[in-house]
Each structure stands twice: as C-alpha cells, then as structure tokens.
Nucleic acid binder design. Sequence first.
DNA 1: AAGCACTGCAACCGCAGTACG
DNA 2: TCGTACTGCGGTTGCAGTGCT
Length: 246
Amino acid sequence: MGRRDQQASASAAPPLRKGPWMAEEDAVLIEYVRKYGSRDWSSIRHKGLLPRSGKSCRLRWVNKLKPDLKTGCKFSPEEERVVIELQAQVGNKWARIATYLPGRTDNDVKNFWSTRQKRLARLLQAQSKANSQGAPGKTPAFRHEPMPFQVVCTSLALLDLPLLPETHHLASDFEGVNFDHDPLTHHGVPEFDLLTDALPCLDLGSLGDVKVEEEEMVPAGPDGFFGDFPVDMLDSLNPPASSSRP
DNA sequence: AAGCACTGCAACCGCAGTACG
DNA sequence: TCGTACTGCGGTTGCAGTGCT
C-alpha cells in the first residue's frame, strides 16, 4: 500500500483507543501477524481491524504476544549478571542488551534495571544515613551512563556471581584499586570505597526526600539480588578501613 | 478491616533514524 | 530535495497487586 493510500484510509479509521488491551484485541493482533507478519502496524488501524495506533500494536506484540517470551518469570541470576555487565559496557541500550537475553524484551530489561536501581539506591542510602547520622536522603534517578565498574562488581558480588571474562577489561579503566587477578576479593566484594563511588552514580542529590526506616537496613524478601544475600553482607558495604581510595 | 506505602509491570510519550512519494 | 509516515528506542507514568501499620 502506498503512503497516500494509507493517508486516505487513515481518515476513515476509528478513533484511537488507549489503555489496557482486551483479550479480543490480542486475538485480532495475533491473527493479523499470522496473516501479514510483524510489519505494517499502521495498516491494522487503517484496515479497521483495531482502534489502536501502529505503535501500540507493535509494542503489544513485541512485549506480550510474541512467541517464546518469558512472561511472568523472574530474571535468573545469570540473566541479572548479563544485564549488569552489559549495562556497564554499553549503558542504557536496553534493546541491545535484550538481544543477549532470549525471551526478554527491552521493556523487561528496562523495568528490571530501574527496579534494581531503586533498591540499590535505597540500600546505599540507608547505609549512608547510618554512617552520616541522618542527613535527609533522596530517591535515585535513572542514570544514563554505564554503571561504574566498582558498582558492577558489588552487584555481582551480592549475587555471588563471578565477573564474565568479557568484562574484565573494565577493570583497567578503574584506577586506585588493585584487583590482582580476581576483581572480587574477600567476602566477594571488591576493595574500594563503595559508598563514595556508588552514590554519585546514583544521583542521590537531585531528588525528593525519602524516609528510610531502620528495618530497611536489613534486606528482606526472597526474590533475588538484595533479598538473597546474607544479612551480614551489608557489613561489607562499609568502606573498608584500609581503603585504597582517599 | 481500612488506609497507606511500596513494588512490579504494562502502556504511553517524545524523539531520532529511515523509507518512501 | 523535501515533507510525511513508519519504525524503533529510551524514558516516564499510571495502575493493580501486595504488604505493612
């Protein structure tokens, strides 16, 4: 179909519908893709099949209806490791990172990352508050840059996961810490000043107040990342007395 | 039991790149 | 060459579910 044809038919298309998708809409979309393939999303509306924008149809297909998606399934530690390390390498290129995770979408990765960022920030903030005796805290913002290598190491250490060989080169970008051959030292945590290095990364200074209860000092919940490591792991978040950083 | 806060996720928005007439 | 539409991506928002007080 030519663009002028599309333009003409668009004027006759029903008004756009927004919000959650109904099962019937999903069925129509699936049938459309089965017939015509996952392209020409706008023609779904132009043909009068669905009162949805092409963008909305594509998003629904990519994120929910596409076969082989791991919907409703938590990120495995291995998947978490991949996300953490790739984010450190390429930054917030969620679509690119998702290509390394079969069954995961960019939206999945993005949501996973923002959730973990919030948790990590709250954890670090609680720790920071404990250390500084209570300066008012802030909620973290999304950072667009790749996470510093030391934060990557810590995240992996909390998961009890080793660093992938592909990421070892990042260590060379980080001055001031001697990783020897293994970037993870005793207790699985690298020897650097975590709070000093990690907090700037999380933009703690640019956001609204948040109340941190003492209970938050202890990770709770069974679901991965901070929920899975022992309570005394938090002790490792204290800047080591013999920190090599000033 | 009710209200509140937090979490996770689905969906939308805006922008940039590309294709096409 | 220019204007328009389409596609894809990253960021943000809104809401339902859940847990806590």
